[in-house]
Design a protein around this nucleic acid. Structure first.
Lengths: 232, 232, 232, 232
DNA sequence: AATGAATGAGTATTCATTCAT
DNA sequence: TATGAATGAATACTCATTCAT
């Protein structure tokens, strides 16, 4: 119904190749599959699951409708594959977190290191596409409860687990006290809470306000350390 | 993966009378209006905006479809009126917060008072219907950006403002230090962050786990006071 | 797809009013319902269940597609209501049979009376629309087994039961011997067998060949009486 | 009311090799052709012509869709070749009938011989697959009138012709009187009539009830001989 | 000859909305 | 005002058939 031909918003960062054929030999064949994923991701993120028709997806991918169905059994399957594919990106981000703090050695390094971590974390989550993905999944939690739960496990929960590892290590170094799991949660939501809550209810295609994000990160670290820094 | 819960959840708490006819005189006439609101609220919360048809609303309200259109012009209008009506409930909760801490006078009262506040706040937000409403609005933020923004102002932001007032007062009493606005945000998300993040991605009709909520509230207050309690 | 505007084959005999509103007051309202039944009956008889689309039905009835769905929940329901409605016509025919032989009193009346009965029976069943209905139901027996069984009970089996009553009466009068049920079956298929078998596999819109039917009827009665006439 | 039997019924008896390549040399090449015929026969018998898609046929034959089209031009052609191929089986049955009665010599052999013939005939026609084939062709008589007529000529009519030959021979031996053609028809439908009529409208995968079939055959022969046996 | 992918028209059904009463 | 019936466009999905390899 609603046709948006000039549809060029670059969600490309979030779009990953999904499916079987990734080898060079099949690249030509699965070009259409990738086009469908790309188009559907963009449409789902902007109009939601129900608000996106298979006609629109096929048109946006410059592909016939049946090709969509040949590649993805039905709309539900396409949606799930896309969400899970995109989720993998978030998973990779989480898995990369621990390395960032691996080099913290002495007391004087801790606070700036945490500030850097907090800032990168905040910037990653406030990315407009990441926010759009969260809105999409949250809005479809009733329809796809298992998909939502799986996303939670592989993205937010995975980040918390990574932070827990980080803080357990820092406790082991004698830099922090308290339960690492609690520390991870408190750190995460001191950093993200307000911005994420606001971001859920506001569409803003502008990139993250870096200065604001840095102030938020710095304050979060200050409060966090007031509670969790080991005092001699 | 698609789940359709039975159509019998009593959202009555959230359903308030909306619209013009609230006086006793018009009660007979707007009984149908209320039935429509009640039915539509229930359906929208469970199946979303696009997942709810006007046929379903009319049938659930035992009313003809044209009556729905006579009362609400179109589906969008009905949706917006319902969301704003339900938002008023959240607004009232926010407005009641400051009174809760008005009686705190001496240092020894502060921590238990904050714990009680934190627990009531957490329990209120984790109410299954409140979570469902959040999911609904978040999922429709793209379609109804102004509605989402208005909800944010009248519910989450209103609570933060109320907490800011509370903490400004406590700072004035010499019990806390720091910026009251920052304190309000940090308090709010230390309390809510994790549970709300989890709640967005998990359907759970069970009532809030009180013991767990209390532990969370207590820990949040401890961390909060480590950073914001005025030290002599 | 296939549009047949000049579709004026008069199946009207078979089409009976189906449904709730038959009173004069609702006649105007259910005019469309009747048009749908009329159009769908014609199309189903000619193109089968799967070969008839709801688009075609709506077009042939000069009605919108949704009106078809408002009146008949879905295509299956429409098909079943039509078949059962038409079946009622066959049922009435069966119920009228016993009266035809009620007047047989003396031995000399028996043979001509049976010949008349046989001829009317044969002519009724060889009616092109009746044959088309049989083909339709037989062809859909896999898809609608209960409907086919119900048709069988209310049409062919009902006729056999009526003939059984007739022959039981004639046995009671001392005109026939043997089991009335056997007699009914043998009579029925001596009369119909060949013509019906042939008719199933040949489309022939021409009316029944009366002379041929009479010869068949006469021969059937001769063979039948050779076996079942009581000999003094 | 719609029933979809499991896809495992072994119609192999009815499936014969169809088409050009039957010699040993081409067996390798037409193995796929045979697989297609086998799969399509099974599907057509169970779901009808329109109810069977070329996708299903290709999948059931473990063959690509294009291979189906390479072998059979289009769906109609495939259907017709299958029906005609299966018809050949019925034809062979008819052609074998005369030999069965060739040995009848004396009066005392006649009745048991006819009973045996009647029973075998009845059992052959009541075979579930034969009934399914009849339903299929009858249901498609409007769409494939010439195919239905050809089936009729090569199966039911061929049996009647064979029976006519049998009875002409028996008349020549002085065992029967009357017109052999009439005798054949009356014999055929005294035997089959009721069971065939019932069988058209009832799906029953169970094998024929032998005792019941024998009783029917015996009664049919009794009535038949009452009319056609030559009396000295 | 065989394949997997592609096509465009068609399937039953439902949508938000409006009209006649 | 409230209703039941009606509408035309859209929904997800499937069809028989063909193309490139």
């Amino acid at each position: 119904m609603i046709t948006e031909p000039a549809d060029t918003a670059p969600e490309d960062e979030l779009i990953v190749r999904i499916g079987r054929g990734t080898s060079a030999a099949t690249d030509g064949l699965s070009g259409k599959r990738e086009a469908i994923v790309r188009a559907a991701t963009s449409l789902f993120l902007r109009h939601g699951y129900q608000g996106t028709s298979t006609d629109q997806i096929a048109a946006a991918a410059s592909v016939s409708k049946q090709t969509v169905y040949n590649q993805f059994r039905d709309k539900k399957t396409l949606f799930q594959e896309i969400i899970l594919g995109v989720t993998a990106t978030a998973e990779r981000f989480a898995n990369g977190l621990p390395d960032e703090l691996a080099r913290v050695r002495a007391d004087e390094d801790l606070e700036p290191a945490l500030r850097g971590l907090a800032h990168r974390y905040l910037a990653a989550v406030l990315n407009p596409q990441v926010l759009a993905l969260r809105r999409l999944i949250i809005g479809e939690t009733n329809r796809f409860p298992e998909l939502a739960a799986e996303y939670y496990e592989r993205a937010p929960a995975r980040v918390l687990a990574a932070l827990t590892d980080v803080f357990a290590d820092l406790c082991g170094q004698g830099l922090l006290t308290g339960d690492p799991t609690d520390a991870a949660e408190d750190f995460a939501f001191l950093v993200l809470g307000r911005a994420l809550d606001h971001g859920m209810f506001h569409i803003d295609d502008a990139p993250v306000d870096t200065a604001q994000a840095r102030r938020t990160a710095d304050r979060a670290v200050t409060v966090f350390l007031a509670a969790y820094r080991r005092r001699p």
